[in-house]
């Protein structure tokens, strides 16, 4: 038994990969459809958007590249549906160069679904280099940071930006962030100085980092990982990729818990039987 436990402790990792693969794929094929509880931090963003007046300007910063797509794509889609449903005007930007194509395609696809017109109901300004400087620059003068939008139209000619000279004039900013630059950049260099309200969305792995900002009101809400995106879809009553992925995440979490229990059991067992052997 001692030897078996030792062998299991040194289990080839490919078996673990296989177990996780089954745990991911099976629920996607046969969904469980379990209810999802909405957390207060996600509800706060939803409620804030609900309270914005029609025609209010929401800056959505797609601060991620394709690596963050599995978690942040459903989040972006859900937020855009909500904003367009409420007739908000969306200004998309990104602080990540590799995120430009992805951000533009998400924004234009969702806008098309709602029959929104580019330049009037939404626009994508594109990528601005300089991380924190880009935010400061937008806070000082939007047209200095982005002389033209992603499609080459001068931003002073865009109807959507009439009356919007800088970040001081927008109603809400949400940063969907996979790392730095992201929520921290928008908070430290943007909200603090220019006084706009800020919400955040991030990958599950980085969510714990933003709880101090959430509890002090430095960000007014947080959508954390695929779970957060699924909660937002629940609030919108619009089932998307996040809800579909939650069953896979459920089984994967439980498989990891089982693996942790097993490895700790085997570890304690081998230590105890080892001691008995040498006594």
């Amino acid at each position: 038994m001692h030897d078996l436990a030792r062998r299991l402790l040194g289990l080839d990792r490919r078996w673990i990969f296989l177990v996780i693969a089954f745990g991911t794929v099976l629920p996607l094929l046969y969904p469980l459809g379990l209810p999802i509880r909405v957390s207060p931090e996600v509800r706060k963003i939803y409620d804030y958007i609900e309270r914005l007046p029609p025609g209010g300007v929401l800056v959505l910063s797609f601060d991620f590249e394709p690596a963050g797509k599995p978690e942040l794509f459903p989040m972006a889609v859900a937020l855009l549906h909500h904003a367009f449903q409420n007739n908000l005007k969306i200004v998309g930007v990104t602080l990540w160069p590799a995120g430009t194509g992805l951000a533009e395609s998400i924004l234009s696809q969702v806008a098309q679904e709602h029959g929104k017109v580019r330049g009037i109901d939404y626009t994508f300004l594109g990528y601005a280099p300089g991380e924190a400087n880009a935010v400061i620059s937008m806070g000082q003068d939007l047209s200095a940071a982005f002389p033209a939008d992603h499609y080459g139209t001068k931003i002073t000619d865009l109807p959507i930006l009439q009356g919007i000279r800088s970040l001081r004039d927008v109603h809400y900013v949400i940063s969907l962030s996979v790392g730095f630059p992201g929520i921290d950049t928008w908070y430290v260099y943007g909200k603090e100085k220019y006084g706009f309200e800020l919400g955040g969305g991030c990958t599950a792995v980085s969510a714990p980092r933003f709880y101090p900002l959430l509890n002090t009101g430095q960000i007014n809400g947080l959508i954390g990982g695929l779970r957060g995106a699924a909660e937002y879809e629940v609030l919108l009553a619009r089932e998307g990729k996040a809800i579909a992925g939650m069953d896979a995440q459920s089984t994967t979490h439980f498989l990891i818990i089982v693996l942790l229990a097993l490895c700790n059991f085997f570890s304690v067992f081998t230590r105890q039987t080892g001691r008995t052997r040498y006594r």
Partner: peptide
């Protein structure tokens, strides 16, 4: 680029499980 980067990030679940064990 999009599928390659998304795949790299998704592999995290497999490595987390293995490392945790």
């Amino acid at each position: 680029l999009v599928p390659l980067q998304a795949t790299m990030f998704s592999l995290l679940a497999f490595f987390v499980a293995s490392a945790a064990y």
